[in-house]
Computed example of a mutant assay.
Amino acid sequence: MTTWITICDTCKRTDWDARAPGRTDGEALAELIETAAAAQPEVRTRRHSCLMGCTSGCNVTVQAAGKITYTLGDFEASGEAAEAIVGYAALHAVSDSGQVPYKTWPQGVKGHFVTRHPPLPPEDDTP
């Protein structure tokens, strides 16, 4: 099953104005994630303007139909971060529930989890 990485392309880290005016940190991270994910057929990417996690940018979500969704944040736009995010998404893709055992997490995602959302119930589920 395909796991999607949604990347906030408007994220700016606190020192953004001094470092890279005109290009957001989110745009830079999105490019790196897109490149890293190209070799993972079970992982797809998309960009979204503002995931509303501005105090902990750069932010991404890892999600798939019927699985737990995770929001991760406080990343720098680096190749190491991109590889770790894609590595985690690949593990999420092969998990039946979306849960990935902690001991298998790439080091670069540890400490970056912000939220976890349970999957939506099936359409025919009545209370």
Rank of each mutant, 00 (worst) to 15 (best):
Y70I: 12
I85L: 11
H92E: 09
Q107E: 15
D74P: 02
V43A: 00
T61P: 04
L32F: 05
Y102T: 10
T55P: 03
P21W: 08
V60Y: 01
Q107P: 09
G57V: 08
G87Q: 05
A28Q: 13
A77P: 14
Q40W: 01
A81K: 07
A30N: 08
P118N: 12
G98H: 07
F113T: 15
D96E: 15
A93D: 01
E34R: 08
P122D: 12
V62F: 06
T104E: 14
P21R: 07
T126G: 07
L51Y: 10
G57C: 15
A39H: 10
A37H: 02
E83I: 04
P41G: 03
A82Y: 07
G111I: 08
T24H: 01
D25N: 06
P119V: 12
S78L: 08
T69I: 14
R19A: 05
P121L: 14
R23E: 10
N59A: 13
D25A: 01
V62P: 06
E34L: 01
T69C: 14
C11R: 06
C11L: 03
D15M: 04
T104R: 05
I7V: 15
E31T: 12
L29D: 00
V43W: 01
T6K: 03
A36F: 04
E34A: 07
F75G: 06
F113E: 12
I5K: 00
H48K: 14
A18G: 11
A82W: 06
W16A: 02
S56Q: 13
P101R: 09
M1K: 07
K67D: 10
I7K: 01
E80T: 11
T24A: 02
A90M: 05
P41F: 00
P41Y: 00
P119Y: 11
C8P: 09
G98Q: 09
G73H: 03
R23F: 02
H92I: 10
Q63P: 05
Q63M: 14
D9H: 12
T3R: 04
T71R: 05
K110E: 07
W16P: 00
L91H: 02
P106Y: 00
S97M: 09
A20Q: 08
L32P: 03
T45K: 00
A30P: 05
A93R: 00
I68V: 15
R116S: 13
